[in-house]
């Protein structure tokens, strides 16, 4: 079934296709815009149109869809017909997974491939869970942020199971690249949705420690800061009162570099009623450049002032934050 493009035998010279009359594309009455397709592609699609119109669900039609997909894996109709043939022939779906994997390696951002893969895995049921997690792992080893692979993985977990090692998988990917926002998102997905972990409240302590460590290693990393906030979803009071949250802000501020997200979180904390100690005031005072004005007595204003300067591209945002500050405590 494998076709090597270099040695491709034209279909018109293949005996098994001699009974089929190819059906050329009908470009309408007055084709002003003609696409000049490659001849091999045109021929394959002409034969495809013929078997599609005849609704021929045969092994040769199945192999024809394979050739057509290799030419253009984005054609919805070819995939659609292939599924109908697979169903009619009651074909071995494990073989189908191998085929999809082969196509996916060079087209890992193609929507149709992933959709087809999901259809096949859904047919195979829970037995396919481990295989599908392995498959996405392979794709993610080539591109750890592939949106389709993550999406497929989330579907597999929810539809077929396999949650047991998922937190560990996230940990491994984050160890490889702590800036990988997709892996942080997956971590949140697991913590909030895994039937085995006890949800946000059960996981909060250990997750906060993990996240604080990640922040201390790279305080310019946007993802763990957002993750930290997400761990207190619907529980703002715990977030404001948890000393682990305010202290990570303070620690980053005292390092005096890459502190934009720390200042931003501190600003959010203040807006939600956090009462800062003198240490916070001193740390923010330490961020001023020598020629700047004296520290504003309103800590929120002082923070916005610093951010306006160090994050000048978003100066308007920080100015707006300043204008929205609650009355000083």
């Amino acid at each position: 079934m494998e076709s090597d493009e270099g040695e491709r035998l034209p279909m018109s010279r293949r005996p098994e296709w001699s009974d089929v009359t190819p059906l050329p594309q009908d470009d309408g009455p007055d084709p002003v815009v003609l696409i000049d397709y490659k001849q091999d592609f045109t021929e394959t699609m002409d034969y495809f149109r013929a078997v599609y119109r005849a609704n021929e669900r045969s092994p040769r039609a199945l192999s024809l869809t394979q050739e057509a997909i290799r030419f253009n894996p984005g054609n919805y109709t070819v995939w659609h017909f292939r599924r109908q043939i697979l169903e009619s022939l009651d074909a071995d779906l494990h073989e189908e997974l191998d085929f999809v994997e082969c196509i996916a390696k060079s087209n890992s951002k193609n929507y149709q491939i992933w959709h087809h893969r999901r259809w096949v895995a859904g047919k195979l049921g829970t037995d396919a869970a481990i295989m599908e997690l392995e498959f996405t792992k392979k794709i993610l080893s080539l591109d750890a942020k592939n949106y389709h692979a993550w999406s497929h993985r989330q579907w597999v977990l929810q539809a077929l199971g396999g949650w047991e090692d998922e937190l560990d998988f996230c940990r491994k990917l984050l160890k490889e690249d702590i800036f990988n926002n997709s892996a942080w998102n997956q971590r949140y997905f697991v913590v909030t949705r895994s039937p085995f972990l006890g949800g946000l409240i059960g996981m909060r302590d250990s997750e906060v420690s993990y996240t604080v460590e990640a922040i201390m290693a790279n305080s310019e990393n946007e993802s763990p800061w957002r993750y930290l906030r997400g761990l207190y979803k619907d529980d703002i009071q715990s977030w404001v009162n948890d000393p682990k949250v305010s202290s990570v802000c303070l620690k980053v501020l005292s390092m005096k570099s890459n502190f934009v997200f720390a200042l931003s979180m501190l600003l959010d904390l203040l807006c939600h009623g956090f009462r800062p100690s003198e240490e916070f005031r001193e740390a923010i005072g330490g961020l001023r450049t020598s020629d700047s004005e004296p520290l504003d007595s309103d800590l929120g204003k002082a923070i916005c002032h610093v951010l306006q300067h160090v994050d000048s591209m978003r100066a308007n945002y920080w100015m707006w934050r300043k204008s929205k500050l609650p009355v000083a405590v």
Partner: peptide, 16 residues
């Protein structure tokens, strides 16, 4: 909708 205020392709999908 996600924790960062963004949206993904399905519930739980990364903001994009």
């Amino acid at each position: 909708k996600n924790l960062d205020g963004g949206f993904g392709c399905t519930p739980g999908g990364e903001s994009h």
